[in-house]
């Protein structure tokens, strides 16, 4: 079982804010789902890995990208060719 406090702390890690009045229901649903996930305890931890997968690499070459103005068009707040975000400090 995880507590309302733990749910609040997970929400914070995920940059989501849960309203106080929603926290109780969220926690109940969260626990019901986690209880269902317990079926995974029956899976042997050391399963066999995949040997048949290969990585797909390419040379890191500079290629044409999208026009800067097209990208900036979707941003809420811009200055020159920059996108403005919230304060870091």
């Amino acid at each position: 079982m995880i507590s309302e406090r733990e749910v609040e702390s997970i929400a914070k890690l995920a940059d989501i804010r849960i309203e106080k009045e929603e926290l109780g229901e969220f926690t109940v649903q969260f626990n019901a789902i986690l209880e269902y996930f317990d079926v995974l305890d029956r899976v042997e931890a050391a399963g066999e890995g995949r040997a048949d997968l290969v990585n797909v690499f390419r040379e890191d070459k500079v290629r044409p990208s999208l026009p800067v103005e097209d990208i900036l068009a979707n941003a809420g707040s811009t200055e020159d060719t920059f996108i403005k975000g919230p304060r870091v400090m």
Partner: peptide, 28 residues
């Protein structure tokens, strides 16, 4: 879905408060 913070696309996020405060409110 961590990329959806309102900075680059979608309805704009506020820029006055700190990063986490703005993102939490926007995403919620």
């Amino acid at each position: 879905l961590a990329r959806f913070d309102g900075v680059r696309y979608g309805p704009g996020v506020g820029t006055k408060r700190s990063w986490h405060d703005e993102f939490q409110e926007f995403r919620s």
